[in-house]
Simulated assay, not measured.
Amino acid sequence: MTPKQHRGEVTADLLLDAALRVYAAAGEQGLTVGAVTRESGVSLGSLYHHFGSLDGLRAALAQRWLGRLLDAMVTALRGADTARSGIDALVRSYLSFVREHRDAALLLHSSAADRQSFAQGKELRDAQEARLSPFAAWMSSHIASGEVAALPAALVESLVLGPVVAVARRWLSGIDDVDLDEAARVLPERIWRSVSAAPR
């Protein structure tokens, strides 16, 4: 990497870090070009050079943190030797990430992220394909082995992650009736029952 490329990466990181701080402090409406350049100390021209627009910056910020969440989940899966222990690992890693990176989790579970997902779902998924493929391979291998019910992969993914995302959203919204530790204890078994190929 040349010194110029390194400086470019440092500048992009400053802008992304500042954007998350602004989002955490002021919400979606407060995430403006002016607020980010003031918070980062980086020029307006540099923001446009690296991200093209405020929307480009938002998208890059969401992709950065989605990538980190997926990396945490894949790392957790690597230590699991059964489908059941894998589900436990996925649930715990997701909820731990939400607790440890609350500001980023708020961004990933925001209405703006939902709108972007609806508008650009395939493109976003394609951008994270390398990170998603270990999860897909894990799921396919456990379906093939007969541990997990022979359902379409998208349905298995929804059954596994849907309840976890719902709990995360509820906790992030400030509703005081969700305990993440309790959810981490209860959800894996409940989710396992929904995807296990074993007769009930």
Rank of each mutant, 00 (worst) to 15 (best):
S46V: 10
L47Y: 09
Y48E: 00
Y48M: 07
H49I: 12
H49E: 04
G52Y: 07
G52I: 06
G52F: 13
L57D: 08
A59W: 10
L61Y: 11
A62Q: 02
A62G: 06
Q63C: 13
R64Q: 03
R64T: 04
W65T: 03
W65R: 00
L66K: 04
L66D: 03
G67V: 10
G67I: 12
G67R: 06
R68M: 04
R68T: 15
L69C: 01
L69M: 12
L69A: 07
L70H: 01
L70I: 03
L70C: 05
D71F: 03
D71C: 04
A72V: 12
V74F: 05
V74D: 12
T75L: 06
T75N: 00
T75Y: 10
A76H: 13
L77R: 01
R78H: 09
R78D: 06
A80S: 13
T82K: 05
T82M: 00
A83I: 09
S85W: 10
G86K: 09
G86Q: 08
G86S: 04
G86N: 03
I87F: 01
I87Q: 00
A89D: 04
A89L: 11
L90H: 07
R92F: 10
R92M: 07
R92S: 04
Y94M: 04
L95F: 02
L95A: 08
L95S: 02
L95W: 07
S96T: 08
S96I: 01
S96V: 10
F97D: 04
R99E: 11
E100W: 05
R102A: 14
D103I: 07
A105L: 05
A105N: 09
L106H: 11
L106S: 04
L107E: 03
L107S: 00
L107A: 04
L108K: 12
H109K: 08
H109L: 13
S111P: 07
A112T: 01
A113S: 15
A113D: 01
D114W: 12
R115W: 11
R115K: 10
S117L: 15
S117Q: 12
S117K: 08
Q120F: 15
K122V: 15
E123P: 09
L124R: 14
L124A: 15
L124I: 14
R125C: 03
R125I: 15
D126K: 07
A127L: 13
Q128G: 00
Q128P: 00
E129F: 15
E129A: 13
E129D: 15
E129M: 10
A130C: 08
A130Y: 06
A130M: 12
A130P: 09
R131A: 13
L132E: 01
L132M: 07
L132T: 01
P134C: 02
A137Y: 01
A137W: 03
W138R: 09
